[in-house]
Write a protein that binds this DNA or RNA. Structure first.
Length: 269
RNA sequence: GGUUUAAUCUUAU
């Protein structure tokens, strides 16, 4: 079964869901990993309904669901924004006693946040026994998406006081929110915090900083971040800087950048 | 190389 599971996940990662399903049907001794792999496969393929069907037969067959199961299915529910299904999963979590599992609870609160139910997300967050950076990030991201800077920053301070480490998932959504010249000072403050934590060369954080500075009207600061990130640029970095130049009507610079990125082996998308 | 399955995040569309 171990080997079969390994092959199964190979197929789902290649997005070969048809072959994966055939294999799945032929595995005689399926375990939780087999089922979870199939569910995750469908979710990553964007087929929530099939994933939900698999989950239902998994339960019908008496197999143990776990944090993997809920993490996967809720991710799909969150992307679709179908709260109804999310609530069904929620009650399943309660029924199976996975409310305090950090993966299922974080996925659950994220699902509520993405479905514009931040209140419920916060309630889930409150009853969690164990919280990691993903739990905090998901909640902060929820408020950030609403444009609630105030609450986001309060939570950020709380997160820090509880000793949970900030990471790229913490800063990126916050920076996205800082998209107007009135937030320029805030952006620089967040930037210095990022430097203090040694996240200044994190690719995702840099990319978000480039966009923020640009939207705050300071193309020069955006460019500085881009220059400093020379070792940690990815395609998004180039796209962000391009968008920044174009947003500031600097077509010539944008074009030079466009040439430069191709010289360095980045294929524009 | 620490690899059988899981949750949050950045650009563009």
């Amino acid at each position: 079964t171990y080997t079969a599971n390994n092959i199964l996940s190979g197929y789902t990662k290649c997005r070969e869901l048809g072959i994966a399903l055939e294999l799945f049907d032929e595995i005689p001794n399926r375990d939780s990993v087999t089922w979870n792999s199939m569910i995750a496969g469908y979710i990553n393929y964007g087929n929530v309904d099939s994933a939900w069907d698999i989950l239902k037969s998994m339960i019908r067959g008496g197999f143990m669901v776990d944090g993997y199961t809920f993490g996967s299915i809720l991710k799909g529910v969150a992307c679709e924004g179908s709260v109804g299904l999310g609530m069904q999963v929620h009650s399943l979590i309660v029924k199976t006693g996975y409310e305090e599992n950090v993966y299922s609870a974080s996925a659950l609160l994220d699902m509520y946040a993405k479905c514009d139910r931040v209140e419920e997300a916060y309630m889930v967050f409150q009853v969690m026994l164990e919280r990691n950076s993903v739990s905090w990030n998901a909640l902060i991201g929820g408020y950030a998406k609403l444009g609630d800077l105030h609450t986001s920053f309060i939570l950020l301070r709380l997160m820090e006081s509880e000793g949970v480490r900030f990471d790229d998932g913490t800063f990126a959504p916050l920076l996205t929110l800082l998209d107007d010249p009135e937030f320029y000072k805030t952006t620089t403050a967040v930037h210095s915090k990022i430097k203090k934590l040694g996240l200044e060369f994190n690719t995702t954080v840099c990319n978000a900083l480039i966009s923020s500075y640009s939207e705050c009207g300071c193309i020069e600061d955006a460019r500085k971040v881009f220059e400093n990130a020379i070792k940690s640029r990815d395609l998004v970095s180039w796209n962000s800087m391009l968008a920044a130049y174009l947003g500031h009507n600097k077509e010539t610079l944008a074009f030079k950048l466009f040439i430069e990125m191709q010289d360095l082996g980045f294929d524009p998308d």
